[in-house]
Design a binder for these strands. Structure first.
Lengths: 344, 344
DNA sequence: ATATGACTTGCATACGCATTCAACATGAAC
DNA sequence: GTTCATGTTGAATGCGTATGCAAGTCATAT
């Protein structure tokens, strides 16, 4: 049999609270209390114990603590798409925010090939204190419900209004309207829209708000293309499709990575000038959006605020089951760069 | 006091093995065995128990299992830089590879601002079965040793030859030499080198191999600039510094994200033509390297193979403490695109 | 001097599962 | 029919910590 990770040989067993207690001549309870903030223990004794603990390299065993407290201090983070640079950035900030309040991040990567239910069953077996689902386009509503049932859960950038689920989400309507208004101010009148996954809530909100707004402004929707995924390549394909019809003077891509693919296709493959011939806007404000070649006009998702809100909900318990669920919309901001401009 | 994540109200306690056993009329041991592959239990009884478990929605509590087996099935992944797109891609594939053999990924984000020792103490308290350190430039050798001491550990893209630590690493020497040879074949003779963090082992290996090779080939090193970090902005600054001296006809950047920043600076800020005036090469082959505007010639790090090797070491236990440690070099491949070309 | 209360401390037990050990059943071999 | 090997099961215990409870200490108030 393969020995594998975790086989016991080679690891010297760490010292336990009981052993440390015996050395010092106190009870195991005392050791436990020394490490429990606010526990009933004399300051003097606590110091003594902590000093010995330091010397003996004693560390409380978090596993045992989990078992007896039935609280793990672990948050499951469910992700489905790390190839969009927006998400690594979010995950990084999120995991740092969680670490700041003493929570660890257990990562769950959901992809097409994998057995989702089996992976998510780990959420239950590991007793994670909370689940944060980051735009898991792979998850059906039923799976989502099953995975989060009975525990604290927050969805980021996916909204389920009717179900009893907490959502934290950039204000997609605000963003899409801002882009529409911006196109209008630039004199663009014939605009197209490119979605990533058409059924995702982020897309539906952006798309509907955008189309509604351009109608209000008297502009024409010349095309609507679904890329099939939120990727650079999908953006390229969609842009080519739109360019073939040759009747749009502006394109709003559902996110930045699509938009960047779109810009490359327009310039490299069909020789369009961006922004003169066709203006392009995206959504997210990923790092590449500010690269000069793209200089992408976009609607910024405020990562820090999103993380702050999520961490806050975890901290104050407002995402606990039993608490009323809420949908928090975080306001973003239009970033105007050079991928949009007057007709020229 | 804030209620916070994990407060007990609102969660109904899941059923335990003992309760399930009582319902069925068997012992708790039997339930445990039913869920333990290879355990001594009649196939018939196992099926019966599994059927009831399904009905009663019983799931073994992984925490309790950890405590009694002193094996967590959790791997700590220590990361310091998610802003370089290479790492999210690696993390994604890695966590999927781990999930495939039943291991979960606990993520540790190390950044300048954070208290590293405090964060890494969680590695010990949580009893992770193994630690994978991904190019943690933030970690001193001592901290690294402390964090991984006495447990299975693998460093990815950081090499510590003398210490007793397992390393899996792209063959930097092979890559740097390939770039040098490529420059030479193109007729470039005056080359510069840009490092990210000069003291990192990836940099030292690439730099030394590159410089050695260009000397062998009779080429001139016109400059060597340290960017101070592996970032787009650092690449820009370094490129400007080199362009100011105006005596290089090719630049090898220590990685792709630097190179991309460099290309933008050369083209946008100082009006150089890439590749005609200056050829540029990077290292990693991140997704952006294939974007047509950059079309970056680079040395590809074989992500899948790296992950395969790491997962294999975890699976066969060859990274356990007590086992002889090894440094595995994974061979990559030169990807020639249009950021390098003949003088023109 | 006694009563009261606030603090401290240790004992014992619970947390849920894995595993050892002994008991038992079954069937084959003699 | 007896013996032995093999396979199956349950009782009991351990994993390391947290915590309710009772006992104890000490100072203050009466």
């Amino acid at each position: 049999m393969a020995r594998g990770v975790g086989s016991s040989d080679g690891k010297r067993r760490p010292i336990t609270a009981r052993e440390l207690a015996r050395m010092i001549g106190v009870s195991q309870s005392a050791v436990s209390r020394a490490f429990t903030p606010g526990a009933s223990i004399a300051a003097e004794l606590r110091q003594k114990i902590l000093k010995f603990a330091e010397e003996q390299d004693y560390h409380p065993n978090a596993i045992a603590s989990m078992l007896s407290k039935s609280r793990t201090n672990i948050v499951g983070i469910v992700v489905s798409d790390m190839s969009n640079p927006f998400y690594p950035a979010l995950i990084q900030k999120l995991s740092q925010g969680l670490q700041r309040i003493g929570l660890q991040s257990l990562l769950f990567n959901i992809t097409k090939g994998s057995n989702i239910e089996e992976q998510l069953s780990a959420l239950r077996r590991y007793n994670v204190d909370a689940v944060i689902v980051i735009s898991a386009t792979m998850l059906s509503g039923a799976t989502l419900h099953w995975a989060t049932e009975g525990r604290a859960a927050i969805l980021i950038n996916r909204v389920v209004e009717d179900a009893d689920i907490n959502c934290v989400c950039c204000d997609n309507v605000e963003g899409a309207r801002a882009i529409a208004d911006h196109f209008h101010e630039l004199g663009r009148r014939r605009v197209a829209y490119v979605s990533g996954l058409s059924h995702t809530t982020t897309n539906l909100e952006r798309q509907n708000a955008f189309i509604t707004r351009i109608a209000e402004l008297g502009m024409t929707l010349t095309g609507r293309v679904d890329g099939g995924e939120y990727s650079y390549e999908a953006g390229r394909r969609a842009a080519l499709e739109i360019a073939a019809k040759n009747n749009a003077d502006a394109i709003f891509f559902a996110n930045d990575i699509l938009a960047i693919g779109g810009i490359d296709a327009l310039r490299e493959d069909v020789g369009k000038r961006v922004p003169e011939d066709i203006s392009v806007a995206g959504f997210d404000d990923i790092p590449m959006a500010s690269w000069p070649h793209y200089a992408l006009t976009t609607f910024r998702q405020p990562l820090d605020e999103i993380v702050t809100v999520v961490v806050g909900m975890l901290e104050d318990g407002s995402c606990q089951p039993g608490q009323p669920s809420s949908v928090r919309r975080i306001s973003g901001g239009l970033i105007v760069r050079h991928s949009t401009g007057p007709l020229g």
